[in-house]
Design a protein around this nucleic acid. Structure first.
Length: 474
RNA sequence: GCGCCUCUAGCUCAACGGCAGAGCAACGGACUCUUAAUCCGCAGGUUCUGGGUUCGAAUCCCAGGGGGCGCACCA
């Protein structure tokens, strides 16, 4: 079936019996300088080749690892071809497993099929490619030449799978909501704009799935989540890619305290699944994800950190003078809530190392969160801060359409004053709330940031297979 | 968007005002148990681009482009 008659033709399929890892697992223990009678078929890329006259060695690498191939002209008719392989060629081989005199587990091959040739070289076999630009543009090479790149991405893909399993085990349903939005709502950010020709209508790439997920709650789905790409038209930096992945989930009948429990359990479970412990090292320091995480209000944390009394009840003039003191240039529309938030972000957030729930944000800066049940001017909202950065944002959802309308109005006013990240009035969302939304807790987690923590990298582009790059100059 | 750094062979890097080089890869050859195999040979360049200074520029200066880092914005 898969005979190779024409010289340049390569087969359409190859029947693998083993991965390199399963060869290692099955035969790793055999004695040095012995042969088994066990035949294996493996496939992958030739990453090293050592031809030594009448005997040749190659390192065959696949998704799971690598194994040595051993070839001799007596055993292998196409020995000549084997010796002429290029680094990077894809081959499928068959042979008996044994160990060489030096104790290296090897496949003593008697059949070779060239599955694909590498017309381009793989770079320095020791250094691989280190040019960062080339690495990201040509990930397909980078994944073969830098093991950490492969590990990071494979961790990433594993984590999203773990999240799905965790949430599905708890009765959450994975849903999909629109990416093309007539209004870019659900977060404070500048959107990408696009256009639908047939409808002659401007659309925005979503900056958050939030408002549609909550419409699903109104529609009767009680526990929903979406892991999806969101798009924000902002600068690119080591921590920002214009498209990134968010997990958002909404649970009817839950409040932000319930969501806090869910969040710390979810994250610490993932940390344990990946690292085998709740304690991991990040950028040279230890992070401890063991539950329960610290819980403190934003005002308490800001006050402790600055040694000043920072609260919504602090007189405006005093807050403004503190802001000045910390180099924050306050703007006309800012009330006490915005000032307190800015002071907290400037002075406190980056100092919070171990996972901390920062709670009870000012209503003024939380247009979609429900008023705190006992504290006026505050909402039932928390952010989870890890290693000085926001990992999660969550709240008891605002379900009152009148209050939501008032919050949107305030946003529209901010927009009029020049805040180009302010939200718009979303009449359809308000209509949904008017039909009645049950008490609901919601959560958003930046998946890329989570992977950065798990993989001990400070570069968001390391955790994205194909980060946004400027157009390549040719 | 602003500041600083950087760009040399396919890859990793030298040369830092005086003839552009090495290792790996490629190509030709030797080699029957290697481990980044080794050895011999051969080839490889608009030194990111364009100006300028200089007897002479990869090197110094200016402008542009790519990339990195920091700041700002944000998740």
């Amino acid at each position: 079936m898969d005979e190779q008659i024409p010289e340049l033709a390569t087969p359409y399929r190859f029947e693998k019996s083993d991965s390199t890892a399963s060869v290692r697992e099955r035969f790793g223990d055999i004695e040095t300088a012995t042969m088994t009678d066990q035949r294996v078929n493996v496939a992958g890329r030739v990453m090293l080749l050592r031809v030594q006259g009448k005997v040749a060695f190659a390192e065959l690498r696949d998704e799971t690892g690598a194994v040595q191939l051993f070839a001799r002209p007596n055993d292998l008719n196409s020995f000549e071809r084997f010796c002429n392989l290029s680094l990077g060629d894809w081959i499928g081989v068959s042979g008996l497993v044994g160990k060489t005199r030096r104790g290296e587990l090897s496949i003593f091959i008697d059949d070779l099929k060239v599955l694909a040739i590498a017309r381009r070289g793989f770079g320095d076999k020791w250094h691989g490619i280190t040019d960062v630009d080339t690495r990201y543009r040509q990930r397909y090479v980078d994944l073969w030449t830098s093991p950490t790149s492969r590990n990071i991405l494979s961790t990433r893909f594993k984590v999203t799978s773990l999240i799905r399993r965790f949430l599905e085990d708890r009765g959450f349903v994975e849903v999909e909501t629109p990416i093309l939005h007539p209004l870019a709502g659900g977060a404070l950010a500048r959107p990408f704009k696009t256009h639908h020709n047939a409808l002659d209508m401007d659309l925005f790439l979503r900056i958050a799935p939030e408002l549609y997920l909550k419409r699903l709650i109104v529609g009767g789905f009680e526990k929903v989540f979406e892991i999806g790409r969101v798009f924000r038209n902002e600068g690119i930096s080591p921590r920002h890619n214009p498209e990134f992945t968010m997990l958002e989930l909404y649970e009817a009948y839950a409040d932000y305290q319930d969501i806090m429990l869910l969040t710390e359990t979810l994250i610490s479970d993932i940390v344990v699944a990946i690292h085998g412990s709740t304690k991991i090292s990040y950028q040279g320091e230890q992070l401890d994800f063991s539950v329960p995480w610290e819980r403190s209000t934003l005002e308490e944390l800001a006050s402790t950190s600055t040694g000043l009394e920072i609260s919504l009840d602090t007189p405006m003039e005093v807050l403004k003078s503190y802001a000045d003191q910390f180099g924050i240039s306050s703007e006309p529309g800012w009330g006490p809530g915005k000032l307190v938030l800015e002071i907290y972000e400037k002075t406190t957030e980056s100092k919070l190392w171990n996972p901390t729930f920062v709670t009870d944000f000012p209503t003024e800066v939380s247009p979609l969160s429900r008023d705190h049940r006992t504290k006026p001017s505050r909402v039932e909202r928390f952010e989870a801060i890890v290693a000085g950065r926001e990992l999660a944002n969550a709240f008891s959802e605002l379900v009152d359409p009148d209050e939501q309308r008032a919050r949107f109005k305030h946003q529209v006013e901010l927009g009029r004053q020049g805040d180009d990240e302010a939200m718009s009035m979303d009449e359809d969302y308000l209509r949904a709330l008017e039909y009645g939304m049950p008490p609901t807790g919601g959560l958003g987690i930046g998946i890329d940031r989570l992977i950065m923590l798990l993989c001990d990298t400070s570069q968001i582009r390391e955790v994205i297979a194909f980060p946004v790059m400027r157009e390549e100059q040719r």
